[in-house]
């Protein structure tokens, strides 16, 4: 495998954007390219992630080409997935030896539609979607099962929220933040019991961009390149009754294959839109109690669907680059109840 490093990262997240997708994306891509020290024309491959259903129109990603430097023509691809998978495709492309570097970006405007309702269209179209179960209700079913199996309480979930909101205070890109203890949060009413508002993601609009570079050259582009040491992703069956919702088997496989347990982990950025999912993931990834979880506030505090997974990878890389740790685990997920999971192990030079 070729060594590939994350050499730059930029993001934009806001509760509601009045700019269109191109206008949101353009400065983010520009910032990532500028801080990579590379000329746009030097970057070998471009890959992006987004979803038409968020935009409510087909080919939502085509317009984005206006803002990302696609002239003269570029080697480019797009996944209808979270941008973390676009990064994976770019990493694969670098492994083939055809290119040495890539620009990866993702964007999403969750505020355009009713996100929890839009996500009902991800379920079984013949037998489940007709009921229009919104995403929060489906997550509530998973939370109830998980608490029962793991002996966890609503207080445990509230502790996750309180810590995330507190950490988000130092993250200018988080859209939910604050200093409220679990006691206070538990006094709030339920949204979809056992979940309260603070257990559910703070939806946001935004974009994320990352530049990766292979080999020695990465060392010349930044002070401390952050190397991708393990990268794997897996999927579980879709039917909510066909798998154990209290676990994330696909995350377990991905973590094992990415080598999470091979060495000490300093920090982890987990894409858990709901509080209980963070607890499921800690277990699935085998993270020790002393691992710092979601210092950014995580996806719970800025749920820009389609870019939040890539954002986790960027957030983790940024902290390693800044010397806050030497080894990090970044995670992305997709689908209801953590159906599809990706694990990326990052190490500082």
């Amino acid at each position: 495998m070729r060594d590939v490093a994350i050499v730059s990262f930029a993001q934009s997240n806001a509760a509601r954007e009045d700019r269109n997708e191109v206008e949101i994306l353009l400065p983010v891509v520009k910032a990532a390219v500028a801080s990579s020290q590379l000329e746009r024309s030097e970057i070998g491959f471009t890959c992006s992630g987004s979803s038409d259903f968020l935009q409510g129109q087909p080919f939502a990603f085509v317009m984005a080409l206006d803002g990302v430097g696609a002239w003269p023509p570029i080697k480019e691809s797009h996944v209808e997935m979270d941008g973390a998978w676009a990064l994976y495709e770019a990493w694969v492309k670098i492994q083939t030896g055809e290119v040495d570097s890539a620009l990866v970006y993702a964007f999403g405007k969750t505020s355009s539609g009713d996100l929890a309702e839009v996500q009902a269209l991800q379920l079984d179209p013949y037998c489940v979607t007709q009921l229009w179960p919104d995403a929060d209700s489906v997550a509530g079913i998973q939370a109830r099962l998980y608490m029962e199996r793991a002996g966890r309480s609503e207080r445990d979930l509230a502790e996750v929220a309180a810590r995330s909101l507190r950490d988000a205070q130092s993250n200018p890109h988080a859209v939910a933040k604050g200093d409220r203890d679990a006691e206070k949060l538990l006094a709030e009413p339920y949204r979809t019991s056992p979940l309260r508002d603070h257990d559910c993601p703070a939806n946001s609009d935004g974009a994320t961009a990352i530049v990766v570079m292979a080999g020695e050259r990465a060392k010349t582009l930044c002070e401390r390149p952050v190397w991708i040491r393990g990268f794997d992703h897996r999927i579980d069956p879709p039917a909510l009754g066909a798998r154990d919702l209290t676990r994330a088997p696909s995350a377990e496989i991905a973590a094992a294959r990415a080598g999470v347990g091979d060495d000490k982990v300093d920090l982890a950025e987990l894409s858990a839109p709901y509080t209980h999912q963070e607890l499921i993931l800690r277990e699935a990834l085998g993270l020790a109690d002393d691992v710092r979880i979601n210092p950014s506030g995580g996806t719970l505090c800025a749920h820009t669907m389609m870019s939040c997974g890539l954002n986790r990878i960027g957030d983790a890389a940024q902290r390693i680059a800044a010397g806050e740790g030497d080894r990090a685990v970044a995670h992305a997920s997709q689908g209801h109840c953590l159906q599809q999971n990706m694990v990326c192990v990052l190490e500082g030079e």
């Binding site: 979803s51 996944v79 495709e89 379920l123 999927i235």
Partner: peptide
Amino acid sequence: MLPENYLADAVGATGKPLLRV
């Protein structure tokens, strides 16, 4: 929306990597 997630087991992808382009 993202129908490959719904189709994952129909194409034998359970426990495997699945990409949607």
